[in-house]
Design a protein around this nucleic acid. Structure first.
Ligand SMILES: [Mn+2]
Ligand SMILES: [Mn+2]
Ligand SMILES: [Zn+2]
Ligand SMILES: [Zn+2]
Lengths: 139, 139
DNA sequence: ATGAGTTTGCAACTTTGTTGCAAAATAAAA
DNA sequence: TTTTATTTTGCAACAAAGTTGCAAACTCAT
């Protein structure tokens, strides 16, 4: 797994540093999405707030993670599963936010439905965010 | 139109004040959505930043306006067209954000498509945000 | 017109995010 | 392995966004 992380960083022409390894590891070890605050909490005093901001930004630019729009307008991030490239993301899946536990899921197998737009509107991207009760909280 | 505004406020058991009238008027006079910053700019020194926050919050609670999730995670608001009630919104329409002019539209006639969820997930709300080029910018 | 109740503006504060720069760490070259 | 060039980090200072308490101003019912 650690090997894997180094490979991912190198493959994206990023020098391998402590903070990048740790943060990437956090994403691999969680099923849902992470907010900046989550990472800050989990890492304690390990690295600076600013470093987290910059690392997340770098990962998004490289296509390693993607941002997720949320109803409460907080910023969440999750690993890209698809073959996302630097500058071009292809995360065309539905996201789910649980009202009870707060977890945000990437539903990688549920693809975005086609939306019929009015005359004159051209779409380049469609985001779908479903909220409700997740599998865990339903049992 | 002014009459209308007073009626809306009274119908929602809100006392009629300058700031509430002006802010509601702004929403009626715009085709798209408004952010807190837009209102602050348009109103200049007319009323305090804090008043705008509180007014927007009140309007959302009363079902007069609704929030819109955005890709850049900024908070936008627009008038409720449907019969939204205090505590329960029914704005089941698609939202469109123009990459060029930045306008956010409520596509009130385009209804939210049904999304097939995995076993165990129960949905209570679905938000769809389409981005691209709007009618105005396409011509 | 009066008074109870609501709303507003101000000030002070917290939280979130950004920027410049020197020190430290990494990767490449010798 | 040692040296050097490049990148990344932490710190400090700052800017933007949002919250809270409270006294003064306003609204509305009597
Ligand atoms: Mn995702
Ligand atoms: Mn809308
Ligand atoms: Zn849950
Ligand atoms: Zn446009």
């Amino acid at each position: 797994m650690i090997e894997n992380i180094n490979e991912i960083l190198k493959k994206n022409q990023l020098s391998v540093t402590d903070s990048r390894r740790k943060i990437l590891e956090m994403f691999q070890h969680t099923s849902g999405a992470l907010a900046h605050a989550d990472i800050e909490k989990q890492s304690g005093t390990l690295f600076d707030r600013v470093t987290i901001y910059r690392t997340l930004q770098t990962f998004v630019e490289k296509g390693i993670i993607h941002t997720i729009p949320t109803i409460d307008n907080s910023v969440k991030y999750a690993l890209c599963k698809d073959a996302c490239q630097a500058g071009h993301h292809h995360d065309n899946h539905v996201h789910f936010m649980c009202d009870e536990c707060g977890t945000t899921y990437c539903l990688n197998n549920i693809s975005i439905p086609q939306v019929q737009l009015p005359e004159g509107f051209r779409s380049t991207q469609t985001d779908v965010v479903v909220s409700g009760i997740c599998k865990n909280c339903n049992d």
